[in-house]
């Protein structure tokens, strides 16, 4: 039964993809990469500075990197990860969202203090409190056997 389900799924994907691509003849397509002329320096960026507040073809206001964006970007990323990928390679996201990394993100990006990256300072002590209050936020990045390797020396 599982084999049949897997096979049907694998066959359906390319067939469906081919039909879909034949059918799609118009509409906006995201660029592969952000144009180089606007290459960004080391700072948080507000997309609306250049793109304005128009809602077509993309609601750029949604992606403004506010002071709390590092902690609260997940709902916009869920809508379309492709928009994030125009500016950020997967390696950028992998500082936090990865099968396994060893350096905590705030340490790997030690001098990027304006990004307010997770786990800065005494977080090893503070995570006892925040983990009790909201374990769901820990689970998103440390929830798999490999991504929790940094937890295992204490939590088993």
């Amino acid at each position: 039964m599982k084999f049949i389900r897997y096979t049907v799924f694998l066959l359906a994907v390319p067939v469906l993809g081919f039909l879909l691509s034949c059918a799609a003849r118009s509409g906006y397509r995201l660029p592969i990469a952000h144009p180089q002329i606007f290459e960004l320096g080391e700072k948080r960026e507000f997309c609306t500075k250049c793109h304005g507040y128009n809602k077509k073809p993309i609601d750029f206001e949604r992606y403004n990197h506010t002071a709390l964006f590092t902690e609260s970007h997940r709902l916009v990323a869920y809508q379309d990860e492709g928009v994030c990928a125009i500016c950020h390679a997967q390696s950028f996201c992998n500082d936090c969202h990865a099968t396994r990394v060893e350096l905590k993100p705030s340490l790997k990006n030690e001098t990027a203090n304006y990004r307010r990256i997770q786990h800065r300072g005494d977080y090893l002590a503070r995570h006892r409190i925040e983990g009790r209050i909201d374990p769901s936020s820990c689970f998103r990045c440390h929830g798999s056997p490999k991504s929790s390797k940094t937890c295992q020396s204490c939590h088993g």
Binding site: F9, L10, A12, L20, A23, Y28, S144, K146
Partner: peptide, 24 residues
């Protein structure tokens, strides 16, 4: 794979081995 069906519809699909479980 990700494809656009109509100007307003896109479909994405993936399949493979979950690399988080390779040591389990």
């Amino acid at each position: 794979g990700k494809a656009f069906l109509l100007p307003s519809v896109n479909v994405a699909a993936y399949a493979g081995l979950p690399s988080a479980l390779e040591s389990t």
